[in-house]
Amino acid sequence: MSHLHVPDGLLNIYWVMGSLAVCLALSFIAARSMGKQGPKAVARLAFAIAFMVVVMSVPFGFLPIHLNLAAFIGAMLGGAFCYLAAFAASIVLALFGHGGLTTIGLNTLILGLEGLLASMMFRMFHRKLQVPWAVALAVACTLLVSLTTSLAVLQVAGNEALAVEMLQHEHDHHDAGAHTGAGAFVLGMSPIFALGIALETLLSYGLAAFLSRTRPELLHQD
């Protein structure tokens, strides 16, 4: 749920191109490491992409959020899978008209970080806790970190965009506001962010509990 819904037209060209370049470079590294795992890895990657896109259709009524369970996928399959799946899901959503063409790179980097952290944290927590609790804790911690990262990006990139916009509109008397724009946005959105994190954590817990009952080997349970 932590991907940026920054609309096209807000980020400047340096952010767009820079993030895309890093994202592409990392995707080749991740693909090379996955290529060694054989053809099953491709099929599993396709599964991860499809699942992430399907989960976005989960209805949450009036709430303007949708989940992608990137952290859960990271815990289940690992960071490299999650990174490539996040990249592909961002491309699919952009091509389906969901928007965010210019944020593909940034979204992939943030979701990839989410998957990697979730994978590491799940392994760490799994030593002490049962699988559903380990998954839920890993997802909650990861979402907090990745949401903070995406808001920090929004703070820097969004303020830059607003500052430029204000210069163009010659609203000099509002210049103090340019430095608090994203901050005020975050403050207004914080209840929704908190609800989103809670929903994704609880859903991940439910999914992990379901898998533990039906196919425990999918979550590395011995």
């Binding site: 996955m34 890895a41 592909a88």
Partner: peptide, 26 residues
């Protein structure tokens, strides 16, 4: 030309998965 071949293959394979998954969920 921009993305790894493995990712392109996975994207192709996932198209049917998205359709089937959405139908199953609904």
């Amino acid at each position: 030309t921009l993305i790894p071949g493995l990712l392109l293959d996975a994207l192709y394979l996932s198209m049917k998965g998205v359709e089937r998954g959405t139908q199953r969920f609904q």
